Amino acid sequence: MSSPLANPAVTNLLFSLGAMQVAKRLPLTDEDFIVKLRIGYVSAQVLSLAIYFFIMQKIKKKNDLTTIKYVQPASPMSQEKGGLVTTTVKDYDLAETGKLMRGLFIGIAFMGFLHVYMGYTQPLFIQAIMTVKGVFESKPAMLHLFNKKAEGDLSRPFKTGGGLLESLTGNTAGGVQTDAASIKEAEKPATKKDL
């Protein structure tokens, strides 16, 4: 069993708590400082998007057409059924990077609501740091920026890192299935329907 400190959810929580302590000491009532904080936040988001676009360009340049097969579980939040997914490394990595970019836009929208509508300024500081940290800790960044090998946690398809509770209890059940028996079982209904 790996250490809970190795889980990004735990490190993000600890990092956030530390950043909140630093943010308490910032002059968050000074208008000049708030303008600088906004510029810093927007710069962090632009930098994050630029890194994701750079990663996408590297993925396209590598053009790895190795086939990946896995069984996607049914989503508990939708009517969609899970099933066999056949894709390439290139398409998979582009899709995963796209998901991360969508998450970035959702975060920007949420931060806009918190800052503009609710008037909170402290989250600007914390999220500026956390966003860039998250980009560099992402699996596509590990593979395509830092040239780590696609093994263990970085093997495709990526295992969804459980949240804080799962990391502390060791319960990481669920997720995609990559074993040959599951893939073969998922292929059976597909071939029967085609006949």
Score class of each variant (00 low, 15 high):
F105Q: 10
S48V: 00
V42E: 07
V116P: 00
A50Y: 10
T86Y: 09
Q72K: 11
K81T: 07
I126A: 03
A141T: 07
S16W: 01
K24Y: 12
P76N: 11
G82N: 02
D32C: 05
T121H: 15
M130S: 05
T88P: 05
R38Y: 11
V35L: 15
F33C: 10
I59E: 03
I108P: 10
D64K: 03
M118F: 13
N7G: 09
A23G: 00
L14I: 13
M111L: 14
M101G: 13
V89E: 08
I129P: 08
K133C: 07
A95Y: 06
T97C: 02
G40N: 09
I55E: 02
F125L: 13
S43Q: 00
A9R: 06
A6F: 11
L37I: 08
M118G: 09
L14N: 10
F125N: 14
G83Y: 09
S16T: 15
Y70R: 07
L100Y: 08
I68Y: 01
Y70M: 05
A23I: 01
L49F: 11
L143C: 09
I51N: 04
R25H: 13
Q45K: 10
F125K: 10
V35M: 13
Y117S: 13
G134M: 14
G103H: 06
I39C: 09
T121G: 07
L5E: 03
I59S: 02
I108V: 08
E137H: 14
F136E: 14
V116Q: 03
I106F: 08
F125W: 07
V46Q: 10
P76K: 14
D30I: 14
T87N: 05
D91M: 06
I126C: 05
L37E: 11
K61T: 12
E80Q: 15
H144L: 04
T97D: 06
L28Q: 05
K36F: 12
I55Y: 02
L28T: 09
V71E: 04
T121F: 15
P27S: 12
A95S: 10
V71N: 02
T87K: 01
I126W: 01
L124W: 00
A9H: 08
M56D: 00
Y117K: 15
T11S: 13
T87Y: 02
T87C: 04
G103L: 06
F53L: 15
Y52P: 00
Q79K: 13
T86W: 02
